[in-house]
Amino acid sequence: MADQSAAGRTRRQIYEDRLRRRSLIIAGSSTTIVVLAVLFLVPMAPGWEKVQKSFFNWDVFAKTFPGLLEAFMLDVAIFAWCAPLIAILGLLVALARDVRSPALFPLRILGAAYTDIFRGVPVILTVYLIGFGIPGLGLPRPWNSPYIWGSLALILTYSAYVAEIFRSGIESVHQSQRSAAESLGLSESDTIRFVILPQAIRRVIPAQMNMLIALQKDVALLSFIGPVEIFRQAGVYKSLLANFTPYVGAAVIFLAVTIPATRYADYLLAKQNRERS
């Protein structure tokens, strides 16, 4: 009993700690070896200098980075006004696909057709079609702005995906909950509002985080119809300087946003799994 009182740990715990330390050391050294190998072996490749000059050119990076960061603000803005609208439209479509009343069956068909079409069509086609097509019908300025219609294209496409995720959340709430709500005298809309949605939405938040991350990158597709956001700005720099480093700079900016967001989504998912088990 002496060893137990000394550290307050059992022999089993001490053994497990030792195992954990050992695996940490092994993992650390193998990672170091791989990183060092990459750092030393890649520069030994015959074409490295050329690749470094055109992809990892520090001077170009420093020169173009402020401009890229400024252009990225446009991405952020587009993202900021699209995301809430996507959430609202996505939820509405999901609810439309969930209506139980026979009279509202056309709504279900409409919802299904909507998700089928906008998930099936490439985003870039939607962006072109809506971004150039609708203004081409003869809308006056400023209503023909590529910002408005390009954003609408993103909203329509992403709402289709988001709606399907919401729907999976709604369907994951057990039928017995609806029955229970009904027996308590809640109306159908109150059942959805107070019983189903609070559970459904919470369950799909990690999956929706992934949609946000995807949207954040797809905002760059708006550059095809004119707005000079980070991707287009990087392309302009690339042509001017005949160097691909600006794209690397853009990637760095994207990663600075997406990696924390991805980690956060992972954390939410892990937390949810812990709570459920």
């Binding site: 072109y128 150039f132 097509g133 203004p135 081409g136 003869g138 809308l139 006056p140 300025r141 023909n144 702005s145 590529p146 550059s223 095809f224 119809i225 004119g226 707005p227 000079v228 287009r232 302009v236």
Partner: peptide, 17 residues
């Protein structure tokens, strides 16, 4: 506003953008 090729610039002109 900047575009990928001449066809896209043409489309933006036709759309009055």
């Amino acid at each position: 506003l900047l575009y990928g090729d001449n066809a896209d610039v043409t489309a933006a002109m036709q759309a009055g953008q």
